[in-house]
Amino acid sequence: MDIQIWSDIACPWCYIGKRRFERALEQFPQRDQVTVTWRSFQLDPTLPERSDLDEVDYLVERKGMPREAVEQMMGEVVRQAAGEGLKYDFDSLVVANSRRAHRLLQAAKRADALDGGSRGPALKEALLSAHFEHGENTGDAEVLVRHGVAAGLAADDARAALDSDDLDASVEADIREAAEIGVRGVPFFVFDNRYGVSGAQPTELFLEVLEKVRSEKASPIITVDGAGEACGPDGCA
C-alpha cells in the first residue's frame, strides 16, 4: 500500500497527525507492506528566513486573526499535542520560512531512494520536534545542516541542498500536485491513490481507512472530512 502525506514543518496539526497516523500504522497487521512518502507543502511561502514576530503576533498580524482566538487555539493545540506525547512550546517557537527545510527533506528522500535508507523519516521527525518543541530556527542553514547530518546526510550534501534549484523544483512539484488534487490544508494523506484523508484525524479513523484500502479495489480519491484539524494558508483551525 502506498501512502503519500503532504505536510509542512510549520504546521502544528501535521506533527499531531503524524503521531496519530503512526499509532494506527503500528496496529495495522500489514504494516510491513505499507510505503509512506512525505510530500512538501508550504503554508506561508512569503515568510522571511526568520521572522521577528512570535507565533501569536504572526497569526494576529499576518493572518488577521483576533488575539484572543489565537491564544485559545494555541492552548487547544498544546493540549492535543500533549495527548500524543508532544511538548509544544509556542513561547520559544521561531517563526521561519520552511522552504529550505523542504529542500533538505527532498535531498534525504532522494538519498533513501538510492539505498533504501530512512533519512527522510528521521529528518522529518527531527525538524518537527526542533520547530515545535525546542525553539530552533528551522530556516537557519546551520540548524538544518546539523539535523541533516544527524539523519544520515553528508554535511556537504546537506548544505548544498538548502539552496538547490533542482531540489526546489521537487518541492514545487509536490505543492503543484497538492493543488491539482484539491489539497487546501495539511496534513493531507492519500492512501493508494484511492482515499484522501484531511487533517489530524483520530487514530481510529486512520486505522479504518487502512483496513478499507486493503480490502477494496481501486477507486477515485474520496476525501474523508471528519473532525480532524488542519492548517491552511489563512491559519489553523
Rank of each mutant, 00 (worst) to 15 (best):
Q42T: 08
G117P: 06
D89C: 05
R19G: 11
E180A: 09
A69Y: 04
S219P: 07
L162F: 05
S118R: 11
A82H: 09
G83S: 06
D163L: 12
V190M: 13
N193G: 14
A111S: 13
E68Q: 14
R184P: 10
E84Y: 00
F191Y: 14
D57E: 13
R19Y: 04
K212F: 14
A24L: 05
L104A: 11
E133A: 05
T46W: 15
P48A: 04
L93T: 00
F206L: 03
A161M: 06
W13E: 12
D225Q: 13
L153F: 03
G196C: 06
N97H: 10
Q33F: 03
Q42M: 15
V94T: 08
D166T: 14
M65L: 13
E208D: 13
P48L: 06
T203L: 01
D156C: 05
L93G: 00
K124M: 14
A96G: 05
I5P: 10
A122L: 12
R31G: 01
L128W: 06
G116D: 10
F41W: 13
W6V: 01
P202D: 05
A227G: 13
M73E: 13
A130Y: 00
P12S: 06
Y88H: 03
E216G: 09
E133D: 12
L127M: 08
P66A: 05
K63N: 08
L127Y: 05
T46R: 15
V56T: 13
G182I: 00
G199C: 04
V149M: 04
T223M: 15
F191C: 03
A111P: 06
G148D: 09
G85A: 09
D168H: 09
A200S: 11
Q4F: 15
A150C: 04
A160L: 06
F21H: 02
Q33E: 14
G139E: 11
R67K: 10
D225Y: 11
T35Q: 15
T46M: 13
A237K: 12
S118H: 08
A158W: 09
D225N: 15
V34N: 01
S215W: 02
D89L: 00
F90V: 00
L93Q: 00
D174Y: 09
E76F: 02
D163H: 10
H102M: 12
E26T: 12
D163W: 05
A173C: 07
R119L: 02
I221P: 15
V149S: 04
H147I: 02
V34L: 02
R214V: 08
V143D: 09
P233H: 03
K18Y: 06
A10F: 07
L105N: 10
A230W: 11
R50C: 09
V197F: 11
A227N: 13
V143T: 15
V70N: 00
L162D: 14
R23P: 03
R214E: 14
R23H: 08
D168K: 05
L144Q: 08
K212H: 14
Y195I: 12
Q80E: 12
V34Y: 04
V70G: 00
